[in-house]
Every structure is written in structure tokens, then in C-alpha cells.
């Protein structure tokens, strides 16, 4: 194994650690929000510092590899991809942190019916599943898994698109739930944004492995 190979392997391990950390943050933010668990929410807020520190570490390592090893071809695409994936994952970390802060801002547990009707829990599950897929895709270099998330993101977009009318109806009949509704709609927006971030990650993985640029292209969910 060359010196560059060792550096690239370490970078991949760090990126996988970032995937794991951010996925865990997103899962915990779901638990915190749905169970009104302020202790877990605080844990997410605390761990956000770890996410930020790891982002800086990965950025620095990419910079060093560029400067010292001048990577080319697939190595160059890999380092470029990690740099961008890192940034997207950090944003997902911010989202998990932001969602967890709603726990402190809300008095009492979120209304179960409200959560059910807005499909908030489904959104969390889809977002986590997308993140798990791209993590596996990155680890195994299986671009099929990465391409799969484009379709899953459509489900997030659909839930997000329907959320306004669902929430409007609830507020009309239960004005006392307005505060909770506003937090829920904010969380839905953030989870929709998570889907976009994961899609960006998938695009970077495909760029790195296949040298194809999918950005701004329609019909990405094909398996070509």
C-alpha cells in the first residue's frame, strides 16, 4: 500500500465516522422530539460540537492530501467528493441539532395524532434510511444504493408538499395546537432539506466512482 493509499484509507474511515455520527444524531433527534426527551435533545446539542470538530478535521486532511500528494483521476475525485460529502453531512448534523432544540421550546409531548397526520415519523425514518443507504454506498462503492435515494427523496418531497394543508386543517379545529404545529412544520421542512443534502451526497459518490456528474440533471433516479 502506498503512502497515498494509507492517507486515502484514513480519510475514508473518517468520512464513515462522520456518516455514523450524523446518522446517530438524526435518529436521536427523532427520539428526542417524538418522546419529548430533553435529555436526549441535550445530548444531540452537545454532540453537535463533535460533528463540527470532525468536519474541520476532514477538511484539513483533504487540504493536506491535495497539497502533499497531488491526487489524480479516481483519487482526485475521491478527495473532492469527501470534501463535499463532509460539508453536506455537517449540514445534516445542524438539522438534527435544530430539531432537538424544538424539544426545549415545546411544553409537553407532541400530540400523537398530530405527528401521525403530518407523517413526521415517516419523514424521519425515510431520511435515516436514505442516510444509511448512502453510507453503505460510500463504503462498498455500490452506486446502485446511491441512486436509490433519489426515489426515496421523492417521498420526502411529497410529505412536505402535503404538510401545509394537513397542518392548516388541524390549526383550524384545534387552535391550542398552533405552537406544536409550527414546530412540526419547521421539523418537516428541515427533514425535507435533509433529503436534499443526502441526494447531494449520493451525487458525489456517483461522481467519485463513475466520473459522472448528475448535478442539475433531471431523471437521476434511473439505474444507469
Amino acid at each position: 500500500m502506498t503512502h497515498l493509499d494509507i492517507e486515502l484509507k484514513q480519510l475514508k474511515e473518517e468520512a464513515l465516522e462522520m456518516f455514523d455520527l450524523v446518522t446517530s444524531q438524526l435518529k436521536k433527534s427523532k427520539t428526542a422530539l417524538l418522546n419529548n426527551d430533553s435529555e436526549i435533545a441535550r445530548e444531540v446539542n452537545f454532540n453537535e460540537r463533535r460533528v463540527n470538530a470532525l468536519e474541520l478535521k476532514i477538511d484539513k486532511d483533504c487540504e493536506n492530501i491535495f497539497a502533499l500528494f497531488n491526487p489524480l483521476a479516481i483519487d482526485l475525485r475521491f478527495v473532492l467528493a469527501v470534501l463535499k460529502i463532509n460539508s453536506n453531512l455537517e449540514r445534516i448534523g445542524d438539522i438534527a441539532d435544530g430539531i432537538s432544540r424544538y424539544v426545549a421550546a415545546t411544553s409537553g409531548r407532541f400530540d400523537k395524532e398530530l405527528v401521525h397526520q403530518t407523517k413526521l415519523e415517516d419523514m424521519f425514518d425515510i431520511a435515516v434510511s436514505m442516510l444509511t443507504d448512502v453510507r453503505a454506498s460510500f463504503d462498498t462503492e455500490d452506486t446502485k444504493l446511491a441512486r436509490g435515494v433519489f426515489k426515496k427523496d421523492d417521498s420526502l418531497d411529497e410529505i412536505n408538499a402535503n404538510a401545509n394543508s394537513v397542518v392548516e386543517d388541524i390549526i383550524r379545529t384545534n387552535t391550542e395546537k398552533t405552537g406544536q404545529c409550527l414546530h412540526i412544520i419547521s421539523a418537516i421542512r428541515k427533514l425535507e432539506r435533509t433529503g436534499d443534502q443526502v441526494k447531494n451526497v449520493a451525487e458525489e459518490i456517483i461522481f467519485y466512482i463513475e466520473a459522472k456528474v448528475l448535478k442539475h440533471l433531471p431523471g437521476k433516479n434511473t439505474n444507469e
Binding site: T2, L4, P71, L72, A73, D75, L76, R77, A211
Partner: peptide, 17 residues
């Protein structure tokens, strides 16, 4: 050649392998 060579031999060479 330096970002996306078509032949695996080229890729191995330019990446120093």
C-alpha cells in the same frame, strides 16, 4: 487523462500505483 482516464492502466499509472 488526469481526472477520468478511460484505460485502467492509465489510471494505475497516473495515480502512482
Amino acid at each position: 487523462i488526469f481526472t477520468n482516464p478511460k484505460d485502467p492502466k492509465t489510471q494505475s499509472y497516473v495515480t502512482g500505483r
